[in-house]
Design a protein around this nucleic acid. Structure first.
Lengths: 201, 201
DNA sequence: GTCTATAATTAGATAGAC
DNA sequence: GTCTATCTAATTATAGAC
């Protein structure tokens, strides 16, 4: 049963996790302060320790959130493509990933920020989320007709993730460097199709 | 004239810049502390403010250093390929970039850490280093026979940078996720050739 | 549940001894 | 030049009022 108090509790937690995801992606785990997160969420720092026990636990909640979004959006999109031919289906899966990277650059920022070191957060992220997703989606991506062995699959994974996400993850830099705005609809679609056709010619 | 004192001064500055590049790439600008940098350099925090006026100035010195290495190594390598045929020359340029990204993952880490926001460091990096390099190298990379217009050049740039660097920038994650060690010679060469042939078929 | 107040650390920058 | 000591401000986590 959801009392009014429980509803507000969930709403507050939600706002804090949302703000935390933004802040962690923007400034990195160490660079983001719980005070700043509380301000973005329109509340105070004490509440963060109340709802989440520590900054680390809050980070995990933020990671859960963005990974959950990825699984939901990619899963839904791919479900509608069951009967497309395998090559076009792989292309469309890549396009869907690129669109997600454009809509949620926080994912890539979080991955790079944590993946470069060997701290507990990285290990937790790999073991809890990345490995299950990798083992579920990648064998399909590198289906038998592509002739990719397991090690080439790893190369292909990081090529797709890097090629598909970087331009959106460093959008402010891209605007200043090239004049191209990664946030526009045509830029996103052009990039998605570019990467998809590159990886599935 | 180089007195003994001036020599030691330069050596100390050098050690600090080296340590700073490591630390900034590892923990991000905000996450890296000047005390930690001083420790890595085998000296103390006070010296950093003496040699560099501020943490920001130290960061710029670290950025100068990694960009200098990139220009030196890429320039030397490309100079030896003046007369190769254009397609193979472009491939080899991409391979050279990937090898650099493998040897110096700090570059990509720094770029993502700064490129995602609009702070002064990003603007300085783009205006001082990235824009000149981009305008010098990229028109050649997308030579007339590739049929890339200016906006596709921007897409190609971020595809190459992301595809060529990510696996090395998040090496600890890659090891845990895929079992593949990005630091080995064959992994580097396989990745370099993979990206080169992808972008120049 | 939510907030304010505060304790204990740690940060960058400064001052001064050597 | 190099180092230690210190200042001011910001950090996470905690305690307690409401």
């Amino acid at each position: 049963m959801t009392t009014r108090r429980a509803e507000q509790r969930d709403a507050t937690r939600e706002r804090i996790v949302e703000a935390a995801l933004e802040a962690f992606a923007e400034k990195g785990f160490r660079g983001a302060s719980t005070r700043d997160i509380a301000n973005r969420a329109g509340t105070n720092q004490g509440l963060i320790t109340y709802h989440f026990q520590s900054k680390d636990a809050l980070w995990r909640a933020a990671a859960d959130r963005i990974i959950g979004l990825l699984q939901k959006e990619l899963g839904e999109h791919l479900a509608g493509l069951e009967f497309a031919n395998p090559r076009e289906r792989r292309r469309e899966a890549i396009r869907a990933y690129v669109r997600f990277a454009a809509a949620h650059p926080e994912l890539f920022r979080l991955m790079v920020d944590e993946g470069k070191n060997s701290e507990e957060r990285m290990k937790w992220l790999v073991d809890t989320h990345l490995k299950p997703m990798y083992e579920r989606f990648m064998p399909e991506a590198g289906a038998s007709d592509t002739g990719l062995d397991a090690s080439m699959l790893a190369h292909a994974y990081y090529v797709m993730a890097g090629a598909g996400s970087l331009i959106f993850a460093v959008a402010p830099e891209c605007r200043r460097l090239t004049g191209l705005d990664p946030a526009t609809r045509t830029t996103i679609e052009t990039h998605a199709d570019f990467v998809a056709r590159l990886l599935v010619p």
